[in-house]
Design a protein around this nucleic acid. Structure first.
Ligand SMILES: [Mn+2]
Ligand SMILES: [Mn+2]
Ligand SMILES: [Zn+2]
Ligand SMILES: [Zn+2]
Lengths: 138, 138
DNA sequence: AAAGTTATGCAACTTTGTTGCAAATTATTT
DNA sequence: AAATAATTTGCAACAAAGTTGCATAACTTT
C-alpha cells in the first residue's frame, strides 16, 4: 500500500508528504467518493483545513482524483481509475448516489451514453449521475 | 407577463409578493439557468440575500424551478417546463453547460437516456450534464 | 550534511448559507 | 373599506466554506 502511494505521488511529480500520503490512502481505502468534510473527519483533525483544500486541488489537477457533479452544493471526489493525466481526465463513467446511505459510487463499468444534441451544440464531455438505492442498502 | 406570474404563484398557493414576482420574472425572461448570485445582481440589490435564498428554496419545493447538477460547487436553477408539482419534479432532460460563455441551457427536447446498472443498484432518477460549446458561441 | 526547493500551518479575510425575531406586507374576514 | 389573521421580509448575528500571504517546517537534491 505504502509503495503504491509513493509511486502515484512520484509519478505525478509531487513531493511525498504526510498529508498527501494520508489523503491518498483514504481514497485508496474508500470504496465511494469523499467530500472535503469526510477527509477532515477521517484524518482526525491532523491537518489544517487549508492543506486539505490544497491537496485536493493538486490531486484534481494532476488527474489523481476527479470530481462528481451533484445537485446540492456538495463537492465530492473519487480516485481516477487509471490513465488520467495532468489536465486530461478520462473518467467517463456513470456515478451513483444512494438516497439511503448517501454514498457515491463510481460505476466504472458503466459508460456515459452519448446523446443527440440540437443543432449548434457541440459536446466536449458528458457526465451522468444516477440516484437510487445502492447494492449495500437494498 | 404579470398575469402569468400571478397565475404561477397562486397556482402554487404562494402569496404574491414583490420579491417572488421579480425573481419569477427573471426566470421567465432568462433563457438559461440562474445562480443565486445572478439573481442578486439582476434584482439590483433590491432584496435581502436571505429573501432570495428563501424564495429559491420555496420555488424549488413547489416545483416551479429545478436545480442543475454541476461539477464545481455552484448551484444553478432553471424554470421547470411544466407539470412539476410539490415534491415531484419531472424535468428529466439533459443540461448543457457552455465552456465559453458558461451559460447553462435546459435541453428540454433531449431526454436523459437510461443505462443498465450493475446488479443490486436500483435507479430512481438520472441526471445528465453535457459541457461543450453552445449554439450562441460556435 | 547543507543548500535549495516546496509544502504546511497560522492568521486574517471573503463568500456563502442559516436562524430567530420584530416589523411590514399580504390575505382573509367582518 | 377597515380590522384581523396569517405570512413574509429585513436585520442582526452567526456558522460554514473557501481563499490568500507569509514565515516556518518538511522534503529533495547536491
Ligand atoms: Mn468516478
Ligand atoms: Mn432544466
Ligand atoms: Zn446505499
Ligand atoms: Zn456559450
Amino acid at each position: 500500500m505504502d509503495v503504491q502511494i509513493d509511486l502515484i505521488l512520484k509519478r505525478n511529480q509531487l513531493s511525498v508528504t504526510g498529508s498527501r500520503m494520508k489523503i491518498l490512502e483514504l481514497f485508496l481505502e474508500s470504496k465511494g467518493a469523499l467530500a472535503h468534510g469526510d477527509i477532515e473527519k477521517r484524518t482526525g483533525e491532523k491537518f489544517d483545513r487549508v492543506t486539505v483544500y490544497r491537496t485536493l486541488q493538486i490531486f484534481l489537477e494532476k488527474g489523481i482524483i476527479h470530481n462528481i457533479p451533484t445537485s446540492d452544493n456538495s463537492v465530492r471526489y473519487a480516485l481516477c481509475t487509471n490513465d488520467c493525466s495532468e489536465g486530461h481526465h478520462h473518467d467517463n463513467h456513470v456515478h451513483f448516489v444512494c438516497s439511503a446511505c448517501s454514498n457515491t459510487t463510481c460505476l466504472a463499468d458503466v459508460m456515459v451514453p452519448s446523446v443527440k444534441l440540437p443543432v449548434g451544440f457541440s459536446p466536449e464531455e458528458s457526465q451522468m449521475v444516477v440516484t437510487g438505492i445502492c447494492k449495500d442498502c437494498k
